[in-house]
Design a protein around this nucleic acid. Sequence first.
DNA 1: GGCATACTCCGAACAGCGTTCGGAAGGGCG
DNA 2: CGCCCTTCCGAACGCTGTTCGGAGTATGCC
Lengths: 229, 229
Amino acid sequence: MSAPASTATTRVVTTASAAEADRPDRRAARRQATRDEIVAAAWELVREKGLAGLSLRDLAARVGLKAPSLYSYFDSKHAIYDAMFMEGYLAFEAGWERLAAEATEDPAALEGIDLLRTMATRYVEFCTDDPARFQLLFQRTIPDFEPSPESYAVAERVLAAAAERFGAIGITDPGSVDLWTALLSGLASQQIANDPGGDRWSRRIDEAVEMFAAARAPHLITTITRSQP
Amino acid sequence: MSAPASTATTRVVTTASAAEADRPDRRAARRQATRDEIVAAAWELVREKGLAGLSLRDLAARVGLKAPSLYSYFDSKHAIYDAMFMEGYLAFEAGWERLAAEATEDPAALEGIDLLRTMATRYVEFCTDDPARFQLLFQRTIPDFEPSPESYAVAERVLAAAAERFGAIGITDPGSVDLWTALLSGLASQQIANDPGGDRWSRRIDEAVEMFAAARAPHLITTITRSQP
DNA sequence: GGCATACTCCGAACAGCGTTCGGAAGGGCG
DNA sequence: CGCCCTTCCGAACGCTGTTCGGAGTATGCC
């Protein structure tokens, strides 16, 4: 949660010395801390009142400010949504990298269809864990919101990583990837919209994965028959 | 834009007789006509400015009124959304019944997997034709909106009809129906959210249907091999 | 025909929203 | 100390959905 590189010093020049380099960061760090606090409070409010129920006066009150003060930290309400968007995708990316690390550590447990199953399960969990986040990241539901290029770059990065992992297990055509994303996002959105808190759709994940694998990656499901000679 | 059947002529009086029964309908008919006009204008506005971009002052202006006057016809803005919700599902039901009629008329062309294919194609077309309608009917995106029991009954009726048709072609377990709805709504929502106006996901419909049929209704796809002795 | 009634319609206003502006405080630097 | 830049906020603007009270009008009854 440290400050991005670009926001750092701004100072430059002066006469140098090592300790002097991070002194101007004092204010910058404080500023970044407040920004983070605002975004965290925004997540809280959004979980309580829904994604569209976020009010700047409420949000400001929760961090001990008045509404106009937020404009010292963000250009607009959409800029707050944008910061949340990026944070959400960073969390998604972190989960993804955790999964990749597990796969490296114990390749046997996460190869072939097991990897697909785990990917699907984690994805749907990630979505249902926080419906407001799902709405912000994967549905485009806020009237005129579009993520900034920097935020969108994070989103594309993680999607590219997923596609690459797909290629590594032998699923290369883009049609299959699109079919996969449609299938998973469909499960998640149906679950959230029509059975919130339940598991009417999420309990179909395994069947969905098997259906997908049978049609799109048959080479992944031969292991079962091989284990019964 | 003709009046519904129940509203009748409005004509004249004379001396009692049968015409007297629909005389009190005069105002009711006019009222219903205005309601319909308001809902039609709301659809227009929603297509132009997005589902959440609907403003009562704009809407009133479009039908030659001021905002408070709308409250003679609807209890609230949500009541207008509710009327649109019902109208949307009635349109969906009409499309569905058209399909059912075609299937009855020409059973050969719409049996087995062809029926699935047509259902899927029509559904995704229905969604992408009007993204605002898709959002209102199938995503729950308006902050505190919930359809009234009467409106929701329409929604359930058409879903039940679809499930029944599923049973008729031999797909009986509810898990398959849920998987089907997840798959189709996933295709539609990805198409609308990530490639509006394009066909990146909608062109995968046939593959999706074949994938689903292979896993969930294998009895529907044997005809191909049978035709090559 | 005349009167009472009900329905439509709207101007004004209220509370809430995101946002802007101007000025009042506060901490860091010469 | 004085300067400056940042932070903070009260007030206000234009927008939103909604309520209220009072006009104007078409209807139903006698």
